[in-house]
Write a protein that binds this DNA or RNA. Structure first.
Lengths: 132, 132
DNA sequence: TAAAAAATAGGAATCATTCTTGTTTTTGCG
DNA sequence: CGCAAAAACAAGAATGATTCCTATTTTTTA
């Protein structure tokens, strides 16, 4: 039951902004980035479009840091590090056997996993340096 | 700088309730469970104590499902399944090489991971049956 | 038992997110 | 083109989980 979507400059810009960063932004951050190009952009529009992107699978949320949802425009399988000091969310590329994990879940629990998220919590390189 | 903690029946009961379930409850759920034994219990007290348990490492949050924080009184290393249909959070026991993963993170990113969370999203056994 | 410290109840405040409504933009069509 | 229907939007109100505040109660200490 796909609803037809009209073209929208703002929606395109929102998706482009999300895709062009590796910062795993919040809705607020996306909004701030676009404020210059679209002075009358509404934060609600950013939230609404992000929700739609999530439904269509173009964007996924990867973490909730300090109560704020952080999203990723890269939906290919990869993992994340959440820095418990500065709140940064970074990409990881581990050799995670997601197939084997899904199989284990199916066999042991009778459940069907559609996505496997691995999130490491700790100190990013920057914050680790500062503790020395 | 550990603050001295007095003894408190309610705090003990809150921790016991959290530890005695595998449902990975919300604060609200814990509150409801204790309402019978402590008719004048305050939801704020549950939140405050959960926050303290998190700080002391006795409890950890394992997922945010539909905007609600879900906690676990079992802080031993294990993984979770979040059912995208009914919102249940279940324990998994996978053969995850967390040591090797932490090592990879350190070598590739220079970061120091203190916890590795693996969360699978999909259909639990019950909800999977219903889709047949 | 009395004062000091800690914990709580109750309710107000916060704040990310969602919803509502009136307006603007886009699209399809004559 | 010009116009009506559909979709998208701005602005701000509403929601709801969580946190904060303060007066009261419980626990500890001596």
């Amino acid at each position: 039951m796909e609803r037809r979507r009209n073209h929208s400059k703002k929606r395109d810009a929102i998706l482009e902004t999300i895709r062009s960063t590796k910062s795993h932004p919040s809705a607020e951050w996306v909004f701030e980035q676009l404020r210059e190009d679209f002075p009358n952009l509404s934060l609600g529009t950013v939230y609404r479009n992000i929700a739609e992107f999530k439904e269509s699978g173009e964007v996924m949320s990867v973490a909730v840091v300090d109560g704020i949802d952080r999203i990723d425009g890269d939906t290919s399988p990869h993992e994340h590090l959440v820095c418990t000091a500065c709140g940064a969310v970074e990409d990881l590329e581990l050799d995670l056997q997601t197939e084997a994990i899904s199989k284990q879940i199916s066999e042991r629990c009778g459940a069907q996993a559609s996505r496997i998220h691995l999130t490491a919590y700790g100190l990013c390189r920057c914050c680790l340096k500062k503790t020395n």
